[in-house]
Design a protein around this nucleic acid. Sequence first.
DNA 1: CGGTACGTTGAGATCGGTCAAAGGTTGTGG
DNA 2: CCACAACCTTTGACCGATCTCAACGTACCG
Lengths: 257, 257
Amino acid sequence: MSQPPFIAAMARKLSRRSPVGEADVAALTALPFRMQTFDRAAYIVREGKPADRTCLIVSGFAYRQKVAKSGGRQILSVHLPGDFVGLEGALLDVADHNVQALTRCEIAIVPRADLRAMLCEHPALALALWVETVIDASIFRERILNIGRRDARGRLAHLLCEFARRLEILGLAEQQSYELPMTQEELADATGLTPVHVNRVLRDFDRSGLIRRVNRVVTILDWDQLCAIADFNETYLHLDQSARARRPAWPPAAAAS
Amino acid sequence: MSQPPFIAAMARKLSRRSPVGEADVAALTALPFRMQTFDRAAYIVREGKPADRTCLIVSGFAYRQKVAKSGGRQILSVHLPGDFVGLEGALLDVADHNVQALTRCEIAIVPRADLRAMLCEHPALALALWVETVIDASIFRERILNIGRRDARGRLAHLLCEFARRLEILGLAEQQSYELPMTQEELADATGLTPVHVNRVLRDFDRSGLIRRVNRVVTILDWDQLCAIADFNETYLHLDQSARARRPAWPPAAAAS
DNA sequence: CGGTACGTTGAGATCGGTCAAAGGTTGTGG
DNA sequence: CCACAACCTTTGACCGATCTCAACGTACCG
């Protein structure tokens, strides 16, 4: 298990947004980790538990989530392969939210102590990872705006646009068509709506020829209008600082699934 | 202008959550900055503009904000003296949101280049500041839950609880009583409601003896019940990792206003 | 072939929004 | 010290987007 391909992909991804030297990449490669597979809906991180692990998604999708006492679940963000989820774990003592697998996924788990040691010795890596958490925060902010100030149509359209863009960067979307592995209930939890209303809005999008949805595959038929409904402005993804149209950093070339 | 007191306070605040050495404090002290006063509602950072500055709030309150195309404004977070707002500025190229003064406030503005240089040379400081941004992100997440999955009463109660706790830590709240310098319109923008409905809920809280509001001073009469309505669990503030009940790091001792 | 999980649809209820107008409060200038 | 203006708060009447409840349809899986 020397030099797994996803570490190299990670290094490539980070170096797009922040300068990373050779010694840094070496340190990244030397990082001890343990692979673990999680089934759909399995908990990867539990709120309230000590944050002793950091999780890199190697394949599959995961999401952050919190539950209100009323029983309502709120999905905070969805994460794709290549995302470091629970990086806070290296810096905070207690997990303040849950992380759940959206699809079956493979996770590389890095112990807190090893990651911290690396961060202290390799400031450039720390900065590069910091940038990632700061972009995460930007996505959280956009979600606050989305849920707080857009109607149901806008919220769902926005989520569809964001997904399309992020998957496109990873090379996982083709021709505005991609697999959205979320049930309508999960979409509802992500947008602060109810499953029933999500259904109605999606049906409406479908009927008016905006999108097509077969099984869980979404095809965007009218990107411009969907963006207009979503009030979608991708600045918050901070793509310009990174890939935009370059070769995707993920999936790792040596291990295309 | 050698050794302004708020730099020392800053160092004290940071060192509570992350180890900071003497050399680091010295670097912090050496950081060049420019003081600027902003009137209420003035823009401190503009969305879309190059993120070339980082702002430390020395006195007063400020908030982050985004506007949807519908015209609705969403307040993303409120920041208190001692908060480093726009730290992303050091790491990202473009501001993805606005920052506005909630009250007249004094801001220490640090140029991006100087801050970056300091971060590269003093990894411990970078980690300490990183922790601050990660806690900010945790607050964003709680806000998503608040707006997405709590009703109007819950949202407002939560905001009141959070404010009370954060001001208490700074030593700005006494006996569950504090000045909340937000108009009802601003409260509405922070909770994803309308000013009219904010008014109704606050009146209701008042009538049922939960809180008292005179001018902009809030007194919490029944903390336990307010917390229950708010579903308030302060884990997300990550206080245990810092001050809790210790002497407040702010305001700076040498310059108590 | 039956079960389980997910999607779809309808009818009615409700929380919060919209519109509109009338009090308060604060500050300013005459 | 008053008068006015600007801004904020409060209240009422009505409306509508979204929720709730409930049923039925559909697809996959063992």
